[in-house]
Nucleic acid binder design. Structure first.
Lengths: 271, 271
DNA sequence: ACCTCCTGTACGCTGTGCGTACTACTTGTA
DNA sequence: TACAAGTAGTACGCACAGCGTACAGGAGGT
């Protein structure tokens, strides 16, 4: 059902996003020609697309260089506005951060990747710039393990098929070991990953379920090996983690089953 | 130059974004037909667009309801990756938040609106959900006043033409008074807005300039009238604000004029 | 049994958006 | 100075992408 043949895909829209996403750390302010070579599109096509995106306010030309405008940041707001979870979770993240004195985050599965949807950072932990919208690999993070552990079998297959690159010497890269790790996560009800994403980076995550019982998000605590150790996380942090995850789950159930109103007064007189 | 006639705008891309942005708090999980009526497009057209967006991973169908996926949050990452300012400003925002014990934020002008590009929130200040990517009205916020005060005259005209709605009883709504307020901002080098966006909400903002001297962002401090008063902000906060804004400006100059490398090691082994 | 909502599909026509080919400008180099 | 190599902008005609109309098939609801 709803398969959608090739006939039902609009190439221009794909091209439009290809151009929008061509703006990158590698190419922060490209010329038209650079975008064309990067995307493989013809220059006139890129020109038309850039002019369209400019009309929509997402890019701007200064001289012969093009760059993104802050408006691209507003696109994500539509996700937050249409999904209660990030808003519901916010106070709970704050509580977790206060309980543990470390950063707390909530993430969701996106294909075979993990995307942060809410976050409270206590201090600048790492070189990694993890903010809302950041993507992290699914196989080497506690959040990813949680999200995949309870996902459809097809997702697990796809993740393994995508490959399990070694990001540190201790990253689990063997498919069998990875499946074992997922099994362990299901058994114990949470995931703990120690230095598999980046040396010294330690994190734990717990599942957050919707009323139907599906795991829709992962709540995570993250810290550095320098500040704490695995035993402390297991003894003192995980109970808080599970407790806060349960609270989010409870609030989420209220919001989604009850009336879908998010502080009605908040929107009025604002925008 | 580079005007771009109507001939050079790709309607399909406009339609694609129209559908993507149709997902809203009002319509978090619409049916195909609902999207069609909201956007004014035909149902088959909307179907094609949704299938395209689904292929790109931005929307997903569950039953006959469609919803955004967390992937839309990643679009904004391309802005952060291609503009040093948000990353550069982050530690400074943290410092400002620590100095003042209140939320600190950085925002940029987008057309005639203001968009938060970086933020450190100290506590849950208000009902307002102000996060990265949020848009706030330009005329009733200290950040907006700063950004507009030093913008092209055409921007000021456009803001006034857009209208200056009264969001609280004290909002400046008279064009002449608004121009006076901007003049005052230019004179004193910062903006202070007291309860014009929401009663009891108090904020101050200072400009951040690029090496060419253009105001490219506004650094803001925000609090509630219940916790402090105008005099304290003027005496104790504004000096910090100006100081931190100068620091951001300095770091920004180094990054943009020097080599455009943002912690090269941070990207490797990450994604 | 009806009616009304929905989605999915077929199909032929229109005109959008494509690329090729060319012009015009700027910058660096011989 | 003149050429080369880069850039952006423009024109134009053709092809087919994507459009909407029209219809079929389900799922509730009365």
């Amino acid at each position: 059902m709803a398969e959608g043949s090739e006939r039902d895909v609009i190439a221009s829209i794909e091209r439009g996003f290809a151009v929008l996403l061509a703006f990158d750390a590698d190419l922060p302010a490209p010329s038209l020609a650079e975008v064309a070579t990067k995307t493989g599109l013809s220059r006139p096509a890129v020109r038309r697309i850039l002019l369209t995106l400019q009309k929509l306010g997402y890019v701007n030309a200064s001289g012969s260089r093009w760059s993104l405008t802050p408006r691209v940041l507003t696109i994500g707001q539509h996700y937050a506005a249409s999904h209660a979870i990030s808003e519901v979770a916010q106070p709970h993240l704050l509580r977790l951060a206060e309980l543990t004195h470390e950063s707390a985050s909530l993430s969701q599965l996106d294909g075979t990747g993990v995307v942060y949807v809410a976050r409270v950072h206590v201090r600048r932990v790492m070189s990694l710039n993890v903010d809302i919208g950041s993507r992290v690999p699914v196989h080497a993070t506690s959040m990813g393990r949680v999200l995949v552990a309870w996902a459809d079998a097809s997702v697990i297959e796809q993740v393994i098929e995508d490959g399990l690159p070694a990001l540190t010497p201790t990253t689990v890269t063997d498919p069998v070991a990875f499946r074992d790790a997922l099994h362990e996560v299901r058994q114990q009800g949470f995931a703990l990953v120690d230095g598999e994403l980046e040396p010294g980076f330690l994190s734990a995550a717990a599942p957050v379920r919707n009323p139907a019982g599906d795991v829709v998000a992962a709540l995570a605590y993250s810290t550095s090996r320098g500040r704490t150790d695995v035993q402390h996380v297991l003894d003192d942090v995980v109970p808080h983690l599970l407790d806060v995850a349960a609270s989010i789950q409870r609030d989420l159930a209220v919001v989604t089953t009850g009336r879908r109103t998010l502080a009605p007064g908040a929107r009025d007189g604002f925008f």
